[in-house]
């Protein structure tokens, strides 16, 4: 697949496309927690690092195959998502944001002291299993499953929690279970993306998963539109490409990047595709046909 693609585009574009794919998985995971369920989580990079380190250690130290390591990393991250999900039952909004920031930092500091993870130097030497094909097949699968989930009874329950938690509970939604579910799936996806990232770069260090990474993922979700799958994809796409294409303005790159975010938020406060869902799009098309 790579060889075929390289006939049309160069390695530079191919790399950006793979990074976009990984970012889409991250954004879709956070979209489920923050966008759909409305729980502001600012520690998504923490889940990503758990997945990355677990998968990397599994292939490096235990010689497991890539698929199992990837799954192991995702499950480990999902487990932590479950554990973090439990205190979120008591916390809302700003308080939850603080807890998740704290969680992200704890994870980062843990890996700084983690002997098996190479401490501050990080881990190096993972075989680069991750390819364009694996990443994008996973992206497609995750988008389809995600769309199915959001369209289902459970998905509507998650939206209901965002809109009004008390009303949702009164209507019979098990808010506790649903919130934990959202956190677990979101963390699982972040762990998966982490495993892919570790085996794409071949090198990971705790500083790759610092607070700014969490903010970057949150930006993708907010910019694309909270709760929208096409939005998260678009957000991941734009925020990965923007810094690259802004290379032409050289030193002012980050200034333009910031300005771009401000402008978009002023004109599209709900995000580019705020509240656009895949089945809304389908409906609109059908109406036009009739």
């Amino acid at each position: 697949m790579e060889g075929f693609l390289l006939q049309f585009i160069d390695a530079y574009y191919l790399r950006i496309l793979v990074i976009i794919g990984i970012n889409i998985i991250l954004a879709l995971g956070l979209n489920l927690i923050t966008g759909v369920t409305g729980q502001l989580s600012m520690g998504h990079a923490g889940f990503m690092s758990i997945g990355a380190y677990t998968a990397a250690i599994l292939t490096l130290q235990f010689g497991l195959s890539f698929g199992i390591a990837l799954l192991g990393g995702a499950v480990m991250a999902g487990l932590f998502g479950f554990l973090i999900g439990i205190p979120t039952l008591r916390l809302e909004g700003d308080y939850l944001a603080m807890v998740t920031i704290g969680f992200g930092e704890i994870i980062r500091v843990f890996f700084l002291n983690f002997e098996l993870g190479g401490k501050a130097t990080g881990l190096y030497g993972m075989t680069k299993y991750t390819t364009f094909t694996t990443v994008w097949i996973l992206v497609i699968i995750i988008v389809l499953l995600n769309a199915k989930l959001l369209k289902s009874r459970h998905g509507r329950a998650l939206y209901a929690i965002r809109e009004n938690e008390i009303a949702a509970e009164a209507a019979g939604v098990n808010t506790t279970l649903m919130k934990v579910l959202a956190f677990t799936i979101g963390a699982f996806l972040a762990g998966l993306a982490g495993g892919l990232y570790a085996h794409y770069m071949g090198y990971i260090a705790p500083k790759d998963f610092a607070f700014m990474k969490s903010i970057e993922i949150l930006n993708m979700v907010v910019l694309g539109g909270m709760g929208s799958i096409p939005g998260s994809i678009l957000g991941a796409f734009i925020l990965t490409i923007a810094p690259e294409m802004l290379r032409i303005v050289d030193e002012y790159r980050l200034l333009f990047y910031g300005a771009l975010l401000v402008i978009l938020m002023i004109f599209r406060p709900n995000g580019l595709l705020g509240n656009v869902r895949i089945y809304d799009l389908k409906k609109r098309f059908r109406k036009k046909e009739v």
Binding site: D10, A11, L14, I16, I19, M201, Y203
Partner: peptide, 20 residues
Amino acid sequence: EDNKGENSDVAIIVDKYISR
């Protein structure tokens, strides 16, 4: 090119330097 001291940026830039 500025790599910001970040891994993913370094990899992207190296690919750009080599292929483009």
